[in-house]
């Protein structure tokens, strides 16, 4: 009898502790994983072998893509305090008053692409409505009404006003099939403000062998 019970013990290890650890880690990873936000302008980024990660903070992403055969540009700000401050400064510039509630709502918007006159309408919407593909028309950026330039400028101003040490970084997230002139326009807008260094968002591609 005693012999049989001994062998039984050896056959099954006590997994309680292991299970505990596993689930603890699992919980940690689930909580730290940020849910992918729906993108109002989905783009297919081109792949590259360069593997530099984008900075997590202090970044403005300019998404350039095509939607319903129209070139569109969306802007996304990573830092929430910069979002709020930028909205305030843009409101001053365009003489639009945003209420604190609207400002708080705007803080949660990751990316948008509407003329500033339609911004209030966007803020009032639910995320799923707002991010319907093709719903937002993009930020105007022609020579008469260059709001993109103002967004970039005010974001940098907001960054400075908030007393951040680092300069804002800019990333261009372009669609692979986007024609070059549109990208060039964006680069020109950035360069007109003396932003000569920017990131191009790319996908991952395996490094080829070079001899």
């Amino acid at each position: 009898m005693a012999k049989i019970t001994m062998s039984k013990k050896a056959a099954s290890i006590d997994m309680t502790a292991m299970c505990d650890v596993a689930f603890l880690l699992l919980t940690f990873f689930i909580l730290t994983a940020t849910a992918k936000q729906p993108e109002p302008l989905p783009v297919q980024t081109p792949a590259s072998t360069v593997q530099t990660k984008l900075p997590e903070t202090g970044l403005i992403t300019l998404t350039v893509g095509k939607n319903q055969d129209k070139n569109k540009v969306f802007i996304g700000m990573k830092d929430r305090d910069i979002r709020v401050k930028t909205l305030e400064l843009m409101g001053d510039k365009y003489k639009i008053k945003f209420t604190p509630e609207e400002s708080a709502q705007f803080e949660l918007i990751d990316e948008f692409g509407v003329p500033i006159t339609a911004l209030k309408q966007i803020i009032g919407m639910r995320s799923s409505e707002r991010n319907r593909p093709g719903f937002q028309p993009g930020i105007p950026m022609d020579s008469i009404d260059n709001q993109l330039k103002d967004w970039i400028y005010t974001a940098r101003q907001a960054n400075a006003d908030l007393g951040k040490k680092d300069y804002l970084k800019f990333a261009i997230k372009g669609d692979a099939q986007q024609e070059y002139p549109q990208i060039r326009k964006i680069m020109d807008i950035l360069q007109d403000q003396d932003i000569n260094n920017f990131n191009l968002v790319t996908g991952l591609r395996a490094k080829p062998k070079t001899n």
């Binding site: 990873f29 730290t32 994983a33 992918k36 980024t45 590259s48 360069v50 593997q51 530099t52 990660k53 984008l54 990333a171 997230k173 680069m187 360069q191 003396d194 000569n196 260094n197 920017f198 990131n199 191009l200 968002v201 790319t202 996908g203 991952l204």
Partner: peptide, 15 residues
Amino acid sequence: TSLSKPQSMDLGMPA
């Protein structure tokens, strides 16, 4: 979590 971070390419343009 580690793979979803987008890659990027630095580009410096002359002033």
